[in-house]
């Protein structure tokens, strides 16, 4: 799984050189931002359930059928549960991305192939984009987490939304 440090090391290894001053400098830069990322990851790990529920509620508010593009479900509880499960999945990967400081976990475990999977299941990814954008606009700096942490969290949400949309 890629992270800032492994990317630096892979580049140094390709050139067969010891970590240079600029390598160490870029690792230091990523460590300086790490405190904010850790804070966001911690808050997300503690509250992911209600965050995902918020996204599901927002999706079902605009579209009572649930996921766009899908056949109407006979039992909409099931649809809601699956919708929430998917949001929890994205939030978990965002948690990993915040921990590693790169988009590697999101790319490897969610985004690569997402379009194909959603097309095959005839799910409109705009559903998830809508939910993620809701979360993006819900975060509030002093209430939920510090401003820097929120910036990192929002950047991760944006990345997923842009990749799916």
């Amino acid at each position: 799984m890629k992270s800032t440090i492994t990317t630096v090391i892979a580049a140094a290894d390709n050139a067969a050189r010891f970590p240079s001053a600029s390598d160490l400098e870029s690792v230091r830069g990523s460590m300086e931002r790490a405190a904010a990322r850790m804070e966001a990851a911690e808050k997300l790990a503690a509250n992911y359930d209600s965050v995902a529920q918020e996204a599901v509620d927002a999706v079902y508010k605009v579209n009572p059928q649930g996921t766009l593009g899908r056949q109407p479900r006979v039992c909409d509880t099931e649809g809601k549960e699956k919708c929430k499960r998917d949001f929890v999945h994205y939030l978990r990967l965002i948690n990993y991305a915040l921990v590693t400081g790169g988009t590697g976990p999101l790319d490897e475990l969610a985004i690569n192939g997402a379009k194909e999977v959603y097309a095959a299941l005839s799910i409109d990814p705009a559903t998830y984009v809508y939910g993620l954008n809701t979360l993006r606009n819900r975060g509030c700096a002093p209430r939920d987490m510090s401003a820097q942490a929120l910036a990192e969290y929002n950047a991760a949400l944006d990345y997923v939304a842009n990749s799916l949309g």
Partner: peptide, 8 residues
């Protein structure tokens, strides 16, 4: 892996 990606 590094310490971060090992945790993830």
């Amino acid at each position: 892996l590094d310490a971060f990606s090992r945790a993830a």
